[in-house]
Design a protein around this nucleic acid. Structure first.
Length: 432
DNA sequence: TCTGGGGTCCTAGGACCC
DNA sequence: TCTGGGGTCCTAGGACCC
């Protein structure tokens, strides 16, 4: 049996955890640059504010109903997330951290002790709420897809009190009929449209389809697994997280700029800063990367015809997580893709091809690459330490720097940000 | 005026090899 | 005009997820 624990409106709930007066009010949290709505309270949803909608389009609605608006504060959300995940790791035999606000629990053998797992789920839910002030819903089922589905029903149907278990087959059948096809995990816009055309409108309809049908119309083996999972046959294992965090297979840092840029130096400053940030994340999870991609994007909403993005990728001579090396490679890639006179609105850096740090794969046919910076590991450690202690980007590579006293040209403004509170010395909660 | 960011997995097709 | 039958590896792109 699996359980899916999913935090309700996570970013909004994080803001509310520190501002109880927000309870019962419509609240939204914005994406980077205050561009889009990325989290909504139940009250905000009821007003018709959609997920992912640009802020400027819902401005009238927001003003009319005095919706509380916050810029996103990922330091806070990340910290709150680890509190929730740490607790789950303590109370479940196996935990897979699936995203910042969701975790699958592996509950193999637990029924022996608990009989029904519903009571267990209710206890977990109550305890998470008490410890973190984050409300959750829990779905329990024999497959991950059904656990997702149970969770969805628990969220929608208030009479269930935030928990639904599909241990009993009759209950499973009922739940399948409650979920429209577009809300099934793995069915996005394209597939939903296609399925509606064929009169398949609920999860129950899809569960009655043949594997062959799913294979043909829903992306091959992915679709086949989806249908099998709805039928109660597990096709996805739990991927337990050792330490309550996610080990990534790729790491990216990409941003839309605060204003359009065209000068090479400005773009280099952005790319160098993004590379540094991504390298930090890379070191944090103890990986080194072998593959580096850099891209530049033009405005996709403007009149310029596609493609809007130019990118280039290189395989590094040796896998590394050293910021200085990575920035110089990124610089070289940027020289290849940058075109004078072109207006860019976004850039990004992606690392791929990971190995565990300290144990690079041996290449039997070539001389081991020379280590160019013998002291680099220690240097990076100091760098990370300083930036953790005194705030991100306290120490940076020169290419990322902007003239004294100025914010970087690529940086945007956020006008609705709340203090970091739990993670920054400058922004500690003030009492009194 | 203003339109996010960070991931995963799979498939098809080309290059290359024997 | 005829022009095999496998493999593997890589990349680009699609679809989806939160």
């Amino acid at each position: 049996m699996f359980a899916l624990v999913d935090c309700n409106n996570f970013y909004v709930s994080c803001e509310r955890a520190f501002q109880p007066k927000l309870a019962g009010q419509p609240v939204v949290v914005l994406s980077n640059n205050d561009g889009c709505i990325v989290s909504r309270s139940a009250e905000a949803k009821a007003l018709g504010i959609k997920m992912g909608e640009p802020l400027f389009q819902v401005r009238p609605l927001i003003e009319q109903h005095q919706v509380q608006v916050f810029s996103s504060n990922y330091a806070l959300y990340g910290d709150m997330s680890s509190r929730v995940m740490n607790y789950l790791t303590d109370v479940a035999p196996e935990v897979e951290v699936y995203s910042i606000d969701e975790a699958f629990l592996g509950l193999h053998g637990m029924q022996r002790y608990f009989g029904s797992l519903e009571k267990y789920a209710r206890d977990v839910r109550a305890e998470v709420l008490q410890r973190t002030h984050i409300p959750t819903c829990v779905g329990i089922a024999p497959t991950k897809t059904l656990a997702k589905l149970a969770n969805r029903v628990a969220k929608k149907d208030a009479s269930l009190g935030g928990v639904l278990s599909l241990e009993e087959p009759e209950c499973r059948q009922w739940a399948l009929t409650q979920v429209p096809i577009e809300d099934v995990w793995g069915i996005g816009r394209q597939y939903a449209t296609k399925l509606y055309d064929q009169r398949i409108t609920t999860a129950a309809d899809l569960a009655r389809c043949s594997e062959a049908y799913a294979r043909k119309h829903l992306g091959g083996v992915v679709g086949a697994r989806l249908v099998r999972e709805l039928q109660g046959f597990p096709c996805h294992q739990l991927a337990p997280s050792e330490d309550g965090t996610l080990a990534r297979k790729s790491i990216a840092c990409t941003r839309t700029f605060g204003r359009p840029l065209h000068r090479f130096d400005d773009l280099l400053a952005a790319v160098a800063a993004f590379t540094s940030r991504a390298a930090e994340k890379l070191r944090q999870q103890g990986s080194v990367a072998h593959v580096l991609t850099v891209f530049l994007s033009q405005n996709r909403f403007g009149n310029t015809p596609p493609p809007h993005t130019r990118s280039a990728q290189i395989t590094l001579p040796a896998a590394t997580s050293n910021t200085l090396d990575l920035v110089s490679y990124a610089h070289a890639i940027l020289l290849r893709i940058w075109q004078p006179g072109t207006i860019y609105v976004k850039a990004g850096v992606v690392f791929d091809g990971f190995e565990a740090a300290g144990q690079p794969q041996l290449n039997l046919f070539e001389k081991a690459p020379e280590i160019t910076r013998p002291q680099s590991a220690a240097l990076m450690q100091q760098l990370d330490k300083l930036n953790a202690r005194f705030g991100r980007a306290t120490v940076q590579v020169a290419a990322a720097l902007s003239p004294k006293g100025q914010t970087a040209p690529w940086q945007g403004q956020t006008q609705h940000r709340t203090p970091a509170r739990t993670t920054s010395w400058d922004e500690l909660w003030e009492v009194g």
